[in-house]
Design a protein around this nucleic acid. Sequence first.
DNA 1: TCGTATATGCTTGTATGGCAGTTTCGCCCC
DNA 2: GGGGCGAAACTGCCATACAAGCATATACGA
Lengths: 238, 238
Amino acid sequence: MPNRMAHAPIKTELVRPTLPKGVSATGFVADQLRHAIISMEFPPGTRLSEGEIAARFAVSRQPVREALISLSRIGLVQVMPQRGTIVTRISTRHIMQVRIAREALESAIVQRACERFDPVIRQSIDTILETQARAAESGDTAAIATADSQFHAALATGAECEIIWQMVQDVKVHSDRVRHLTLENRETMQTLVSQHREIVTAIDARDAAAAEAAMRHHLREILRDLPRVLAAYPTYFE
Amino acid sequence: MPNRMAHAPIKTELVRPTLPKGVSATGFVADQLRHAIISMEFPPGTRLSEGEIAARFAVSRQPVREALISLSRIGLVQVMPQRGTIVTRISTRHIMQVRIAREALESAIVQRACERFDPVIRQSIDTILETQARAAESGDTAAIATADSQFHAALATGAECEIIWQMVQDVKVHSDRVRHLTLENRETMQTLVSQHREIVTAIDARDAAAAEAAMRHHLREILRDLPRVLAAYPTYFE
DNA sequence: TCGTATATGCTTGTATGGCAGTTTCGCCCC
DNA sequence: GGGGCGAAACTGCCATACAAGCATATACGA
């Protein structure tokens, strides 16, 4: 029998003892799968069988199927009718448009942030940046990533752009995925923090043009290592 | 028995004789529902029961459920666990962010269009605009709408922004919905066409700034009648 | 030996039944 | 007559069974 998940053998049995109350099986599976795909536990090209995933999470095929529908809308998986479902390979064409879209959306967010911004959230941003700075010094990549997500999320909610933020999140997963392939050194981590500070400074000054410029620069920096990643993992691309 | 769809009584039995080959029941139902919601056949607040819809389209509840999941991701319906599913009401907060997002995305598209544009599609745009101009003269609102969609789609594909266009479509449905409530006079129709021409002219001249400005102006024009609609249909909003 | 037809094991798609939470309405008690 | 309580009917959620399409291996024939 051919091993269907040869690229990503699951190490641990992910059996859920009892589903936490208030969390649907569909949502649970969707979250787990999304995380597994972004973290490259399921690298691009991995074949995903509804039945297999269902067995792994100890649920029926139906919640798995519905989770896959959600993920396919984001573009993380590609379901081919009657043939199979695979984790989407990364195409430069796709990643390019994703970058443009995210840049456009987050630029709009910071522009709006320059017009009005929730002062409470403004304060929380400072603590987020401090946390991230400490993580950058100690080289804790995981903490950096979560702080990064929190930063951008706080920016969006502070500017009252929750719906836009939802859209950003949907495209962000793709840059997060390639980012998981780049091992960042301490220097790039600290430039990340300084770029964040730059954005906040511009917003504090109500300088929309500067804020937008800083954000665009920041977002382009993220995908700076794309060509190197493409060379290192050619099978993940198409 | 309480009439669950009091706001939107279905006139015609939408029984599908045989599903066209290559079209899944899920996709069929999703398309039908999306159209019904945008065209205000199912106005905001309409209660949608999985079972009822399934019976109406002569399919089982599962495809209906999966279609509703897709629509809920776009934000056209809102499923409340164990409680029910309704066509989302229009909130000014939501429509505002949708406008910002669409503006940001389509601005990015025209900017990219100024850098490079498929000449073949460039030609097709001319015919689209001619068709739309004729429709504007005869006052055919339906033809106008389809031509409008074609125009924006051609812009995106010509600039090689298919993925971004997909995102635009997902937010466009919301502006389309309020647009179906505004009865446009012949004058606004013709300004629409002239605005389209303006955008194309700027792109032809490779003037990114002008193109972006024209697009932003155009998109803001669309929602000009929002306050009037809000006053006319208060129950559709929240 | 090569090409073709067929059988088999996979995949996703659809239908149906039962379950649990939520709301609603009517009855009973105060 | 008014208020609390309980059963019934609704909802979406999940599990299971069946159907249909595709891919590959295999057997058969030229």
